[in-house]
Amino acid sequence: MPQTQSRRTPSPGSMDSGLPPVIRRGRGVAQNGANRFERLHRTACDDGWGTLDEEALAPPPVPTVLVRDASRSAITWNDSADIWFDRSINTYRGCEHGCVYCFARPSHAYLGYSPGLDFETKLVFKPEVATLLEAELRRPGYEVRPIALGTNTDPYQPVERTLRLTRAVLEVLERFGHPVSIVTKSANVVADLDILARMAGKGLARVYLSVTTLDASLARRMEPRASTPSLRLAAIARLASAGIPTGVLAAPMIPGLNDAELERILEAASRHGAGEAAFTLLRLPLELREMMQTWLEQHYPQRARHVLNLIRETRGGALNDARPHERFRGQGAYAELLGRRFHRAARQYRLEGRATLDCTRFAVPGRPAQTLDDGQLSLFG
């Protein structure tokens, strides 16, 4: 069981240890890189007993710690020009899946933690998230639009099996008739099949499974605590068979590493019942650039330089381009070819659909509903 902290405190691991990078079993990155907001950094010093060498050869396991979030809101708002939703809920901050490529890693620095091991071992959770959400939905003047789950970190990461915060959020959304769109790389999403099926029957839910690769060996290195590719495909099948609009998100595509699998991923998802598809190109904001380079040198040393050069080719010579409309797709011949391949495969495997979500069913419990299927007003929420 993960440990729990009652309040958030900066982690000493947020500062550079000076230790050489080591592969830690069950974790995505080797160590804690520097938090860009910290002024102090640690430097490792051997006292002559060879302790640093011992730790490099057999690094100790890093436990998962749960940290209570004291913030008093559930919904996060954005006005980004290239994101389809304007509101989202992240039931957890940090993610135990440990995906080395996760664009959300740098956000952990805002909490005083490292985007490295801290991101996947110090998980911030909000036990009152469902209560806070209900209060926000009851506010006068709230205007309903689809809400997104899983936009920053995964709502079905392993800790959800015990905390069940995502399920609590879905229970609130179902009672209010509020539409929701979910992105996850966990097969555990089927634990909420009952709620999602009921909501989908009213046009209130859709789910995307993120499938980065079909290669279990690569997946275990890139995303060590996420569901295996085969289990994600099985989850797509179960969701689709329950009548839930289900899609596949082939993301991120990493040039020279997994992008050759794009068509195979879409074909497999279609075969398992997916009706929609999307993809994104790898992006490496802030601290993620150094972490990704280190990971490539550890796991794929012969390919590391080639992969990094291809990434630069899609990012105007850099490893990242944060400009709206560019960050998800990239630029240049390589990125354009990837986009054409995706659209061709999406047509071929009939994945060009896009389930619409119904915003007309929203009603605050205890107040009259605006409409029903028969067009009559109701006195019941």
Results as ranks from 00 to 15, higher is better:
Ile83Asn: 12
Ser88Tyr: 07
Met15Trp: 13
Leu296Ile: 06
Ala219Glu: 02
Val307Thr: 10
Ala318His: 14
Arg341Pro: 02
Gly48Pro: 04
Cys359Ile: 14
Ile83Gly: 02
Ser241Asp: 13
Asn320Thr: 11
Ala355Phe: 12
Leu170Gly: 06
Asn309Cys: 09
Tyr156Ser: 03
Ala369Gly: 14
Asp79Thr: 14
Ala269Thr: 01
Gly375Pro: 09
Val248Cys: 02
Leu196Lys: 01
Phe125Glu: 03
Phe176Ser: 03
Ala355Ser: 15
Glu143Ala: 14
Gly48Val: 12
Gln370Met: 02
Pro224Glu: 04
Thr9Glu: 14
Arg347Ala: 08
Pro229Lys: 01
Ser14Lys: 13
Val100Tyr: 01
Gly141Val: 00
Ile182Glu: 05
Arg220Asp: 13
Ile75Asn: 02
Thr371Asn: 11
Arg303Ala: 15
Gly273Asn: 06
Arg329Gln: 00
Gly150Met: 03
Arg7Ile: 09
Ala268Asn: 02
Thr166Met: 12
Ile244Met: 08
Phe85Met: 04
Ala219Ser: 15
Asn35Leu: 06
Thr184Cys: 03
Ala333Asp: 13
Thr121His: 10
Arg68Glu: 09
Lys126Arg: 15
Pro224Gln: 08
Gly203Glu: 02
Val29Pro: 00
Leu372Cys: 12
Ala242Gly: 02
Ala30Tyr: 04
Lys185Thr: 08
Leu123Phe: 02
Asp79Tyr: 09
Asp194Tyr: 02
Ala70Asn: 09
